[in-house]
Simulated scan of single mutants.
Amino acid sequence: MKADDICRFRSARLFDGRTWHEQATLVVSNGRVSGLSSGPVVAPTLDLGDCTILPGLVDLQCNGGGGILLDGDTTDVGLKTIVDTHARLGTLHVLPTLITTTPAATDHVLSLGARATRLGLAGFLGLHLEGPHLSLSRRGAHDSRLIRPMQEADIVRLERARSELDHIVVTLAAETVPPETIARLTRAGIVVSLGHSDATYEQAMAAFRAGASMATHLFNAMSQMGNREPGLVGAVLDAPGVSAGIIADTIHVHRATMRAAVAAKRGPGAIFLVSDSMAQAGTDWTSFLLGDDIIERRQGALRLADGTLAGADLTMFSAVRNWVDIGLGAIEDAVARATSLPLRALGHEDPHRLAEGLPADFIVLTPDMELETVYRSGIAIAEYSS
């Protein structure tokens, strides 16, 4: 099928991001959704039988994929490889993430992102800069030698980059960057996320009042909630306008902890899913290098030699499956946490994912809820059926 053809996809169930449709037909024209129908089948139609159609997933934190880690050596082709790898895994919209690095490497990656935006790289939402303005005590796998305070040059760099990118998320530690700087960043349209931080509840709430609106991988690499000091975790759950990513692999966060967090989170902010995947995504690698460190891939986790978690061996589709399997929500809840809720955290007011006029980016699941086919602009880019 060519992108300018009209094609119809009939399935037993279709979730458009807001509503379930039974025995529905998704109509695609010129790579975009042109309608949904539950009427008689009109030829030509691809009958998907008992399968389910869901919107393409969204990931605001993926550090790499397809054997490429986003860093100062990444090329334009490498960035496209990361985006396309996650697309084939069902995540059709991504915010590639650069972890703590040098100013020169940051400039390089920001230039890559600006070119990708100008060229309209399909599935590229912008960039997430996770560091280097973090807490040394909560650095996780980030290189301690590269963690540093935020300077005027860093602020100007981010302001300039925001004018060239659709979205920038910056993860920083609230105790290292003052509220007035956070306010300046948010005025420039930058989404400030708190993470890798040992902030107190009061420091975190001051950052949120200044405009920070997100938290990075909730519970991991941050001050925990105690009975007298709620820490960053407590502040995130208590702040109504704040959303937070969570790594739902049941390794980074226990299922009971996730369940408690979902119950405690005050809205309209919400907990959404992220993969925190590394270069191994979409490969059969058993180990790889992160700077000078060897990362071992085993038993569903990525770890340094000392056992420190270093990203996650997770796809967004696996996160959705996990969310449902451990009883945290129905499939539509899990899909919302992997589509509309992260997009809302980026500032999209009504991120309705399979609606007329929007790109026909969707995934097809088997009756057993396994990933069968991935479609970008109405064209199959990955098929998993036997």
Rank of each mutant, 00 (worst) to 15 (best):
H133G: 14
G211P: 13
S111K: 09
H196P: 04
V335L: 09
A207K: 05
A260K: 03
R255D: 10
G49A: 08
L343C: 07
G329F: 09
G56T: 02
V374A: 15
H142R: 11
D325K: 11
T257I: 03
D107V: 05
S135V: 04
L95K: 08
H217T: 12
E152N: 11
G327N: 12
S37W: 09
G66V: 08
E356L: 03
F272H: 15
H93V: 01
H128P: 06
I6F: 05
V109N: 11
S223H: 14
I99G: 07
A336G: 07
S275L: 11
D154V: 12
T106K: 06
A116F: 06
E202M: 10
D76V: 05
V33S: 10
M150K: 13
I246R: 05
V233G: 12
T339S: 13
T97E: 04
S144C: 09
F208K: 00
L36N: 07
L218Y: 05
S37N: 10
G56K: 02
E159P: 02
S377V: 02
I168V: 07
P178Q: 07
R321I: 02
D73I: 12
V170G: 14
S163G: 00
V236M: 13
L314N: 15
D166K: 09
L328R: 01
K80G: 09
I190R: 03
S38F: 00
M1E: 09
A380P: 11
G131E: 03
I82E: 00
Y375F: 15
H86L: 13
F15H: 03
A43K: 01
D84E: 12
A382M: 11
A215H: 09
L57M: 10
T100K: 00
G49R: 05
I190E: 04
A336C: 14
L302K: 00
I68Y: 07
L110C: 11
A188N: 01
I363D: 08
M369R: 12
D143E: 12
E164I: 05
S386V: 13
V169D: 05
E159N: 06
D47P: 09
V191C: 10
F288H: 14
R187C: 02
D284T: 09
V262W: 15
E22G: 04
L304A: 13
G31F: 13
S197G: 08
V27Y: 00
C51W: 00
A281T: 09
V41K: 13
D5Q: 14
